[in-house]
Structures are given as C-alpha cells and as structure tokens.
C-alpha cells in the first residue's frame, strides 16, 4: 500500500474516534449498558439491591471511621481515670469542708460557753451576736455539700454512658489503649506528670513517710 493511502485511512479512523469521543453518551445508552450488565448477574439481585448494598457499605465505612475517632479520644481513660478522679476529689472536698466546719463549730460553741461566764452584759451580748454570725455562715457547708452531690450524680451518669460507649467500641478502644501505653512508657516522669495538686487522703503519704523517704537519701 502506498504511504499516502495508509495515511488517509489512519486519518479517517482518528477523526472517527474524535467524533465518537466528542459525542456525549446518552442516558438511554447508559441505561441499556446497565441493564445488560444486570442481566448477566445471577440470582435475584436488582438495581435497588445494589443501591442498598452501596449505601450500607458507605454507612459501615462511616461507622468504622467514627468508632476509630471515638476510640482515639480514649473514652476508657475518661471513665476509668478522669471521671473517677473528679468524683473522688469532690467527695474529698465535701469531707474536708465538713471536718473544718465541725472544728469551727467546736470553737464557737466553746466561745459561747465561755461568754456565759462574762459579767459584762454588753460584752457578752456582742460575743453572742458574733457567734450567731459564725453559726449562720456555717450554713455554707450544707449548701455546698448538696450542690457538689448533684455534680457527683451528674458525673456518675456521664461515667455510665461512657462505659456503655466503651462496651460498644471494645476492640477499637483496646487497640488504642495498647498503642497509647506503649507510647507513654518512658524512663522518668515529666514535670507535667508531677503536677497533681493535693492528693486524696487514701493516696497521700504522711509527713512521717516523707521524712523517712528523705532520710534515705542522706
């Protein structure tokens, strides 16, 4: 075949291909192709089924991502460490204020008794007025105790909900926890690790124990 004839044929085919590419595929053509493909599928799978499966698959992917994101928030740590610590600390606040209020009342009752022995009526009256003020002020212990109890109740409710979430997420949380524990393993506690504020009475060491500990360094 002469070279120019081959070129003409090639040019014709290229132009034909360009024309086909330029022409958009119609909806009817797409539908026909889909029907043809669906027709080759076995069983009772319909287009609706396939759409449903696609939606379900997307939903499953979304749930999995959400589970991983929630697990990364470490809900187990929230329920087992932060919330428990918060409720214990609040219980300790109630206990400490109750004890301190008791001490104040002991002292005021003693002043009240002593004032009964004062012969100066004017001074005795003034002392009584002041003891009444202290008694009135000590009302705070009951009110703050009740308010803190409400907060503790709310925290326990949140703890219950978080525990339910942890139970649902089980596997993801365990995996995240293991990775986190590995990452946190270090030789010494950081300065930040050492900032914990006042300890609960059950966790604190006594002054005697501190003295003994320090003596071991001598």
């Amino acid at each position: 075949m002469p070279a120019f004839a081959a070129d003409d044929a090639l040019t014709f085919r290229i132009n034909q291909a360009r024309a086909e590419l330029a022409e958009p595929v119609t909806r009817e053509e797409v539908q026909a192709v889909l029907e043809e493909v669906l027709g080759t599928l076995e069983g009772d799978i319909t287009a609706l089924d396939l759409k449903l499966y696609r939606e379900l698959e997307g939903l499953a992917r979304y749930i999995q991502t959400a589970k991983e994101e929630i697990a990364a928030l470490q809900p187990q740590e929230i329920s087992q460490t932060h919330l428990v610590t918060a409720t214990d600390e609040l219980d300790a606040v109630v206990g400490a204020t109750e004890e301190a209020t008791g001490e104040i009342l002991d002292a005021v009752e003693r002043i009240q008794t002593l004032s009964e022995g004062i012969s100066d009526d004017d001074l005795q009256g003034k002392l009584v007025d002041q003891t009444i003020r202290v008694f009135e002020a000590c009302n705070f212990q009951d009110i703050t105790g009740q308010r803190i109890s409400k907060v503790v109740k709310a925290l326990k409710h949140i703890e219950h909900k978080v525990n339910s979430l942890v139970a649902v997420l089980g596997e993801e949380v365990a995996r995240t926890k293991a990775q986190d524990a590995e990452a946190q393993r270090g030789p010494l506690p950081s300065d930040e690790d050492l900032l914990n504020g006042p300890q609960l009475p059950s966790d604190a060491i006594s002054q005697d124990e501190i003295d003994r500990l320090l003596a071991e360094f001598d």
Binding site: T101, G102, L105, V108, E109, Q112, F135, E136, C138, D142
Partner: peptide, 17 residues
Amino acid sequence: VDDYKTMLRIIRNLLKQ
C-alpha cells in the same frame, strides 16, 4: 431533723440563742 450533722448543730445553737 436533718441528715447533715453540721446543720443539726447550727439549728440547735441558733435555737439556744
């Protein structure tokens, strides 16, 4: 009648006054 012993003491003392 109160479940807070502190409050019982306060009411008792105010009544005494």
